[in-house]
Design a protein around this nucleic acid. Sequence first.
DNA 1: ACGATATTGTAACAGAGTGTAACTGCCCTT
DNA 2: AAGGGCAGTTACACTCTGTTACAATATCGT
Lengths: 249, 249
Amino acid sequence: MSAQVVPMQEGRTGAMCSQALPVADLSSLFARRPVERFAPGQPVFWEGDEATHIFEVADGMLRALRLLGDGRRIIVGFLRPGDLLGVSLKERYLYTVEAVSAVELRRFPRRRFEDEVARHSHLQQQLFSRLRDEMTAAQDQAVLLSRRSAEEKLANFFLMMRRNENCTRTAVVDLPMTRLDIADYLGMTIETVSRTITKLANSGVIAPPERRSVTVLKMETLRSLADGDESEHWMPSPMPRAQYAFASA
Amino acid sequence: MSAQVVPMQEGRTGAMCSQALPVADLSSLFARRPVERFAPGQPVFWEGDEATHIFEVADGMLRALRLLGDGRRIIVGFLRPGDLLGVSLKERYLYTVEAVSAVELRRFPRRRFEDEVARHSHLQQQLFSRLRDEMTAAQDQAVLLSRRSAEEKLANFFLMMRRNENCTRTAVVDLPMTRLDIADYLGMTIETVSRTITKLANSGVIAPPERRSVTVLKMETLRSLADGDESEHWMPSPMPRAQYAFASA
DNA sequence: ACGATATTGTAACAGAGTGTAACTGCCCTT
DNA sequence: AAGGGCAGTTACACTCTGTTACAATATCGT
């Protein structure tokens, strides 16, 4: 997930990590910047603020959220180390970002960031790639929100949060955020989150609820609950298909 | 809306529309391409197909959709003249695109498109701008889907579809798509769509339901129903705000 | 023009999810 | 150790939406 905010995935794949070259990749832009620390709950910037900086998450987790007029809150994504904040934005930030756990960030001036990117085509590629990932994540979230039951939503959520973790049959998934955060991300209420977690625990898919983590007991069952989406992760597609059209009606 | 698919907005704003310069803007790449026609219901490409071309909508309306394993269908956006299809994609298209009404498209090979964009920085700017719009739209859709009632969703939908139209107090909004399309876009069922439209008609906000259009009688009321989002379209933001952080806990 | 089919509208019912509120457990303060 | 505050859970009544079924209407093909 890390919806709106450019997941890293590949990032620096190890190896040539020295800063020999001036700008090896997007992350290296941030490498020499000082670390800024944010306490849990503390805001980094607000929706509507002038977008002066791009941030890279060095450590911890953050939430990106939007507020509706009547106070309803929507979390559009959670951010983790390696993610960038603020790339996809125009003159103003689209959402508020707050620290969930203790967070370390590095910031880079937006103008200079754009200059650097414009100057180096390989950075451009990377940026486009990140934007595409971000788009995909945003779309996936839309799909998740539109046509899925509480159980499916949570199953998906646990799997998304499991990213990084080893893919064993059982796993402990870290949940630094509160139930309210989860609810606002999945478009439900904290009560439904609680009830559903309890239900999953009763059916033995996960261990009895802990405060800040979930222990998955039956990974496969969880996967099947989460499924429905991902329909089938796209094999070449066997059938030939009409591609061009004849005008009619 | 036009969710995932890069709304145009500015596009060619009239004036210097001749193709004097080699590549004035993104649209001009498509200008000399032959028009392809698609009949209503006809697919342009499928989710998972290799992304070989970028398309520009010349006329008509299309829907971009994704299918879930169990047959559930999610429409991630509707496309209108000036919109581009396929820009945000990786090697494969993320969604299926089908014609809603009779459609005219122009296509451009993706490789060449990317070359052109990489070569001209002003095209890059435009492409980034479109991607940002697309992101915003995707996020707005997520917000719409997550925390809104049937009535709010439809009110929003009508307003989105009214784009272009003159902003008078009453207006006829074209709805080329079926109720099922609307339902799958808003994450509800056709019955709920029907009921809600009837309700809006009974309360005098819109005229009695017509098949392929809606006549808005009380634009302001519709706006207030749709509101809640858009919280306040961002005035400079009055209060000073802590921006940096002290580590703690 | 006519009938078949698809789309849309209406109604009754069931179920999932919500909201309120009470209750538990935990952590922190005093 | 007692008290307050907060996050989380649970229970219950209620609401909204989905489901199912059927009627009405439009669309299409012959």
